[in-house]
Design a protein around this nucleic acid. Structure first.
Length: 811
RNA sequence: GCCGAGAUGGCGGAAUUGGUAGACGCGCCGGACUCAAAAUCCGGUGGGGUAGUCCCCCGUGUGGGUUCGAGUCCCACUCUCGGUACCA
């Protein structure tokens, strides 16, 4: 046996064994309890960073633990391979995006394998594989046929020099990042997915994830979906047929409406501006409509009146720069007395302010200072006077609805998802535009529409690719040259891992076996978009009959960022720690151990090089200790009766550690504490050994359990030591240790004694001592008496097996 | 502004349910081994008082409260981080 811990040799041996025996090849075993453990797949940037190492170590530790618990575990890995960096690299280095991406995948796969993660590599795929995106195209066509995918005009960032569309991240201070030219907003026809059809379900289902997903993530998704209940009201316009529709959450304030405000982009505003020079000038005056001017509450009257739906009163209609076209109908009923923005606008433009809500407690609202936005009691509201806001809300809504002028509606902040990207390195949109037939999907037999990887991204698409016969009428038609948002690929990869090689369907029965993902692990930065889109896609696939269940991820763990010197590791801060040299120097196990030990998974991790050293030392000491006690391997079971007090105490510690580590692995995932407990155990074991009391049977029991507890965390060391000690089987396949209740029992206990809540003494007492006896011993104790002398004992509080608190009062 | 999370030694962090605050690790200090260094091992390490080991006081962002007892619960506040923002 190697006396010194040599990580390289150890890791080689373990990894070879796993590979040769295909230990991580997951097979469907109907009836067996399955566990699908998934870490968010990486973008193949070229090298792993610490965030990846952390993410994948957490995932692998959980997966290996579940396996020891007897679960049938699936842990796959793949590549989120489409995206902008590949196109940039292609431009900068004159390589092809596909080649660059696949080289990066190669390099990162090797790094992941070096870290010993137990992935089922047979299931690996990259989202740029045509066999993968083919099914994305297929599903998209299904959605199109169901009306869930549709086209509409939307604004894009257009770089007039590079003649290209830019992503939001590529627009820096209003200019194209590459050309430096001012970016224009252009209206372009784009594909959208009707995620708003699922808004209610996406929101409601969050409640069922409570306790399984971090609360923070649920709250962020709720806010993002942004449900609000209110009333849609139609105001008649003087001299016009079409009414003006507004949305309000406060119909109780309807009687306080004194004017109407429209967004600058509202069709009525646009129409009037053609004949109204003052309005036209206002709209084209950047000082009055730009984002910076919004705080100034600029506006302009339209010379148009709306009629109050209940009183018929004439209300002037204005354009106001703070009204958003994207929310609601782009128009609001303005109640300056009870909305702060309306109040500011009214002040600025001398519009009337009419109070219709009074504070419920009878106090006066100071409307000269600010709007009164609380709920209260209706006043100046005719027949509604005296009603509470809640009653007024209902009564006014009822009356509007009876008169056909309004009804209750639910609004969402969530917009439909624009999935068109005018990029090359992405999944082609499988659609054909025919002058005669309109938009026609590519027939299923012609899928996938393959991206020509040999074509540099800056080269024009060949005419014979762009122009094809219309599948319907046969006339020449144009292919859609856009690609999908890369979030589309990452919205269903978790399902495809189950059926990775299905070539006649997107998914098959295997997906029903494995899904949902039992534990998903990834960065908090994906709390909204990725996790919302993936939930949406799961529901789409469910409604296609492809998967069971309503949610893709049963449990979610969001790991914190890895910081260095208080900042996120990044090139611009120059504080990136490359995992590679650390693995080189200390070995994979030390790096794995450290990222788990340094902090709980959900916390941000402040990187420290010296911390790694500590973990390395622990493994070395452990290795050496095992080496020095090899003879224990042949020892028989521990005879509990033959142990002295110190040995008994150590054995108790062992079983406490087992209990703690089990709890951590099962529920809390605070692996730092489980590691600390094992470090303590090793320290105690070494002290026992120094005292000459390291009975082989006891040492064997400890080492066997420790190796099992450490197997998910430092699998290589555990694998080799397990074999070298000659224990049965392999570490990986061992059952997780169970704590022995009998060993946890104590005959003598340490009892803390407090007087008035302050610790004054500690007593060693028999565990089965009677209450009377205990009280007598406590009160007879000299240290206790120093604080009870001359006072009256009011009462004595006992926490069994732990603590006694003597409450005294001056006599 | 709003929503969420958090604040514990020089540092990362412990302390399932209110019950010995500071486990474990890093760093630092002292010692052993060594010609020396590295490695390794041993001891110490919240602040203060009394100065030896016995003991006392203070201490978990700030100020209040509940309780026999509060890092943990309640109220108010400060700061940090994450998200989001004229959402009618």
């Amino acid at each position: 046996m190697q006396e010194r811990y040599d990580p390289e040799a150890v890791e080689q041996e373990a990894q070879e064994y796993w590979r040769e025996n295909e230990c991580f090849a997951a097979k469907e075993r109907p009836g067996a309890r399955k566990f699908y453990c998934l870490s968010m797949f990486p973008y193949p940037s070229g090298r792993l960073h610490m965030g990846h190492v952390r993410n994948y170590t957490i995932g692998d530790t959980i997966a290996r633990y579940r396996r020891m618990r007897g679960d049938n575990v699936l842990q796959p890995m793949g590549w989120d391979a489409f995206g902008l960096p590949a196109e940039n690299a292609a431009l900068e280095r004159k390589v092809l995006p596909g080649a660059w991406t696949r080289d990066n995948i190669q390099a990162m796969r090797e790094q992941l394998q070096r870290l010993g993660f137990g992935y089922d590599w047979r299931r690996e795929f990259a989202t740029c594989d045509p066999e993968y995106y083919r099914w994305e195209q297929w599903l998209f066509i299904r959605l199109f046929e169901k009306g869930l995918a549709y086209r509409k005009k939307a604004l894009v960032n257009w770089d007039p020099v590079d003649q290209t569309v830019l992503a939001n991240e590529q627009v820096i201070e209003g200019r194209g990042w590459r050309s430096g030219a001012p970016v224009e907003q252009r209206e372009v026809e784009q594909w959208f997915l009707r995620i708003t059809d699922y808004a209610e379900e996406l929101l409601g289902a969050l409640d069922h994830l409570e306790g399984r997903w971090p609360h923070q993530v649920l709250q962020m998704q709720r806010n993002w979906i942004g449900r609000s209940e209110g009333v849609e009201i139609r105001f008649a316009l003087e001299g016009r047929e079409e009414p003006l529709t507004v949305f309000t959450t406060r119909p109780d304030t309807l009687m306080g409406t004194t004017y109407m405000a429209l967004a600058p982009g509202h069709p009525i505003v646009q129409e009037i501006s053609r004949t109204n020079k003052g309005l036209h000038d206002f709209l084209n005056h950047p000082a009055q409509t730009s984002e910076e001017s919004v705080q100034d509450r600029e506006g302009h009257p339209l010379g148009l009146n709306a009629l109050h739906p209940l009183t018929g009163e004439e209300l002037p209609v204005w354009v106001a720069n703070f009204v958003l076209m994207e929310y609601g109908s782009g128009a609001v009923m303005s109640v300056p007395a009870h909305d702060q923005r309306d109040w500011e606008f009214a002040h600025h433009h001398g519009l009337p302010i009419r109070q219709v809500i009074a504070p419920a407690d009878g106090s006066e609202a100071d409307l000269d200072a600010e709007a009164y936005t609380e709920w209260g009691v209706l006043v100046n509201s005719g027949a509604f006077d005296g009603l509470s806001s809640e009653e007024g809300y209902a009564a006014i809504t009822r009356q509007l609805s009876e008169q056909g002028r309004g009804e209750s509606v639910v609004r969402y902040r969530l917009h439909d998802w624009g999935v068109s990207r005018q990029r090359r390195w992405g999944c082609p949109v499988p659609m054909i535009h025919c002058g005669e037939c309109g938009v026609v999907p590519v027939p299923e037999k012609d899928l996938p529409v393959v991206l020509d990887e040999a074509l540099p991204p800056e080269a024009d698409l060949p005419e014979d690719w762009k122009t094809v016969p219309c599948p319907k009428c046969g006339r020449l038609a144009q292919r859609d040259t856009d690609t999908f948002d890369t979030f589309v690929e990452s919205s269903w990869y978790q399902a495809r891992f189950c059926s990775h090689d299905a070539d006649d369907a997107m998914l098959d029965e295997r997906a029903r076996y494995w899904l949902p993902v039992d534990q998903y692990i990834g960065g908090i930065e994906h709390a909204i978009l990725h996790l919302l889109y993936a939930r949406y896609f799961h529901k789409l696939m469910r409604d296609e009959g492809l998967v069971d269940g309503d949610e893709p991820f049963a449990h979610l763990l969001t790991q914190g960022m890895v910081l260095k010197d208080g900042h996120k590791m990044s090139k611009s801060w120059g504080n990136v720690v490359d995992p590679e040299p650390l693995i080189e120097r200390y070995g994979a196990d030390t790096v794995r151990l450290f990222v788990l030990f340094a902090s709980p998974p959900e916390h941000t991790l402040e990187w420290s090089d010296s911390g790694v050293e500590g973990c390395s030392r622990f493994l070395k000491r452990f290795w050496r200790f095992v080496h020095q006690h090899r003879e224990c391997a042949s020892a028989a079971g521990v005879e509990a009766d033959g142990l002295d007090a110190q040995q008994e105490e150590l054995r108790r510690k062992l079983h406490e550690t087992i209990r703690k580590a089990g709890h951590v692995a099962e529920q809390r995932h605070t692996f730092n504490t489980a590691i600390a407990a094992n470090m303590e155990l090793l320290n105690d074991l070494m002290h026992l050994s120094e005292a000459g009391k390291a009975e082989p049977a006891l040492v064997r029991e400890c080492l066997e359990a420790m190796l099992r507890m450490l197997t998910p965390i430092v699998p290589h060391v555990s694998h080799v030591l397990w074999r070298e000690l000659g224990f049965d089987g392999v570490a990986l396949e061992q059952p997780w240790p169970e704590a022995d209740e009998a060993a946890l029992q104590r005959s003598v206990e340490q009892i803390v004694v407090q007087v008035n809540g302050k610790v004054r003494a500690q007593l060693e007492l028999a565990a089965d001592i009677s209450e009377d006896e205990l009280q007598r011993k406590v009160l007879d104790n000299a240290k206790v008496q120093r604080f009870t002398e001359g006072k009256t004992v009011v009462r004595i509080i006992q926490v069994p097996h732990k603590l006694v608190n003597v409450v005294v009062r001056d006599a």
